[in-house]
Simulated assay, not measured.
Amino acid sequence: MNRLNLRRGLAVTAGALIGLAGVATFANPALAHHPEPSGTYCAAQDGKVTVNWSVGNSETDLAGTITKLESTVPGDITGGLAVEATLPKKGEGTLTGTQTHTFTGELPELKLTVEARWERGDRIITEARSVVAQPAGDCAPAEPPSTPASPEPPASPEPTPSATSPAATPSAPAEPEEPVFRLEETCDTMTFLVENPAKGIPFTATFTTEKGVTKKLVSEPGKTTSVSFDAYKGLKVTVKYDVVEDTETIDYTQPKDCAGQGGGLPVTGPAAGAIAGGAAVLLAAGAVLFVMARRRRVRFTA
């Protein structure tokens, strides 16, 4: 479980960061790796809601592994969608799961955040995506139609007021889109990358190592930015965002087969799990930002 719970502060996301060490790396197909979640729900008259989730794979040649699931719907997800489940290659099926819960009062946002991991060549790629379930009709049993009542005579029309009608209440501004964060650890580097959507918000993240080396990542809507550190045993990077007080420290995990060798090598076994864990920590840390913005109505500035 993440040290920062998405349910606790859910809002600017900062999750599974995967980076690259140069312009050439940004063009690397590895950046395309991501889960493809979707969801629909129906609601009964007694407040019982059934949500059906589905998660696909962006990759046609490589299966992935589900590393984390966070849902705003209380209760477990039943079915094949589960942590450690294998995510089939694109075109070979999807993972599906169902949640059922009885809500009282207004129906909240039904949101699922999925984190998945791919092992390709000399990298482990971890990324998370979120989706809000869309309504799929009423799942209450159909009731026989009642006999319609006799229509009442139409009421006399009200006189039209001469005064100017009041202006319509302005609609609430649209919420910002969440950025995508990634983490990549190889034998040589520890790299953090963020893709800020065109409708995102600007923010700054400050990365500081245990030796006091500091780098800043200025994220602007519609742009992708990254920072990298030379990897070494004992490397720790603390991340601080300019819009929340929380910080997170991520330990560098050296891939299993790096001892005595240069260059990135495939990561398997326990090391892979540790990397995924670090990515999940970042996902929770950054997720705080958007929710803080919604709940505190923070005014973000560059």
Rank of each mutant, 00 (worst) to 15 (best):
A30R: 11
M190F: 13
E84P: 01
A82R: 14
T147C: 00
Q261F: 06
A293R: 04
P157K: 08
D257W: 00
V194T: 13
E119C: 01
V194L: 06
Q99T: 01
G260N: 01
T98P: 05
P166A: 14
D242P: 03
T169C: 00
G91Y: 09
G269N: 13
A271P: 04
L282C: 14
P29H: 12
A149T: 15
Q134G: 01
P135I: 09
T164W: 02
I125P: 02
F192T: 11
P166S: 11
L235Q: 07
D251K: 15
T13C: 04
E152D: 10
V267T: 15
T301N: 13
A140G: 14
P157H: 00
E220C: 03
L10F: 06
T214I: 03
P144T: 08
H33M: 14
A21G: 13
A16G: 08
V180K: 09
V114Q: 06
T65L: 09
G79S: 07
R8L: 13
E220L: 15
A174F: 02
C139W: 02
P141R: 05
G97D: 02
L6R: 05
T60Q: 04
L289E: 10
R295C: 05
A205I: 11
F192D: 07
G91T: 12
P166I: 05
P153A: 11
P88Y: 04
P179L: 02
V180I: 13
L183C: 07
A140T: 15
